[in-house]
């Protein structure tokens, strides 16, 4: 296994704002990975740094083992579709599809046409006159049909409705299964995308908060519900992430329960449910926010 993305101490400042703050991680080749975080957390800036579109203030970034900035050999193997993708004036969808094969060596025309139909994206109207969802659809088509070895999709379905988003996940997964590659997907619709993701990177206020296997992360916290006294007895010596009580019923979220722990909880009369990825991340990112306010 080789690392396809490597960042070490990566930092980007805009004046006084630190958009990306000392971020270090690496991604193995292959897989769909999630870059999650709140709006303005630094997701887009991080992707811009990874694709050589922006210049790091400090630190080092490599894709395919090389620095991406002005490096056609490395950047030429990527595709980066942004939420607010800019198109040349008066460009129509068909123009985008006309030029795409020249820039993406693995471009699949049949797939592109299939995606156009699946998304119902208008190809012969000016892109600047399309709705946000239709523009997103064109971006998604390019992002999938380019089959770039390293694809970055930044909020690729902004403005798409739930049905179209579902279709996007299905089509992405379907094509990924046949043509495995490395895809980094940024989104704040965490639960929707959760099933797709192999690795989860959570960024908050520019800092990399979580870098974990999605499966491990899902099992990393459990919510226990039961009689307040039972709950307290069980969670007394454990790491409690969250606690709430209504009447005599308490609910706690605890970290790292083993299978044995879960059996013990069940025999203590507690109902255990795994915490969803979204809930976990909301708690973790919400947590840093309050820490900063109190600091």
């Amino acid at each position: 296994m080789t690392a396809i993305v490597e960042a070490a101490g990566l930092t980007k400042r805009f004046g006084k704002v630190t958009a990306v703050d000392d971020v270090s991680f690496s991604l193995e080749q292959g897989g769909i990975h999630g870059l999650l975080g709140r709006n303005g957390a630094g997701k887009t800036t991080l992707m811009q740094l990874l694709t050589g579109q922006d210049f790091a203030t400090r630190g080092d970034v490599k894709i395919f083992g090389e620095r991406p900035v002005e490096n056609a050999r490395a950047v030429g193997r990527t595709c980066f579709i942004k939420e607010s993708q800019v198109y040349p004036d008066d460009f129509q969808g068909k123009h985008v599809l006309r030029v795409a094969p020249r820039f993406f060596p693995h471009w699949d025309e049949d797939l592109a046409q299939h995606l156009v139909e699946a998304f119902g994206a208008p190809m012969d109207r000016k892109i600047k006159k399309l709705s946000r969802g239709q523009r997103s659809a064109i971006g998604a088509i390019v992002g999938i049909a380019s089959r770039a070895e390293l694809t970055f999709l930044d909020e690729p379905y902004a403005g798409l409705d739930a049905v179209a988003r579902r279709r996007f996940y299905d089509l992405l997964l379907e094509d990924y299964a046949e043509h495995p590659r490395t895809i980094v997907l940024s989104t704040h619709l965490i639960d929707e995308a959760a099933a797709l993701l192999q690795r989860v990177l959570v960024i908050d206020n520019g800092r990399l908060l979580i870098n974990a296997d999605a499966e491990e992360l899902r099992g990393s916290a459990t919510t226990l519900v039961g009689k307040a006294s039972d709950v307290d007895a069980f969670s007394a010596h454990r790491e409690v992430l969250d606690r709430s009580t209504i009447g005599g019923i308490a609910s706690v979220t605890v970290a790292g329960l083993s299978a044995e722990d879960k059996r013990a909880a069940a025999s203590a009369g507690l109902e255990a449910t795994p915490v969803s990825l979204q809930e976990l991340i909301v708690r973790r990112t919400g947590g840093t926010l309050t820490e900063e306010v109190s600091a």
């Binding site: 694709t51 002005e70 490096n71 950047v75 193997r77 040349p88 993406f104």
Partner: peptide
Amino acid sequence: LTFPFALGFAVTRRD
């Protein structure tokens, strides 16, 4: 307009 579009299409600034 064409510049930001082209960069997303894996073009370097120089090219």
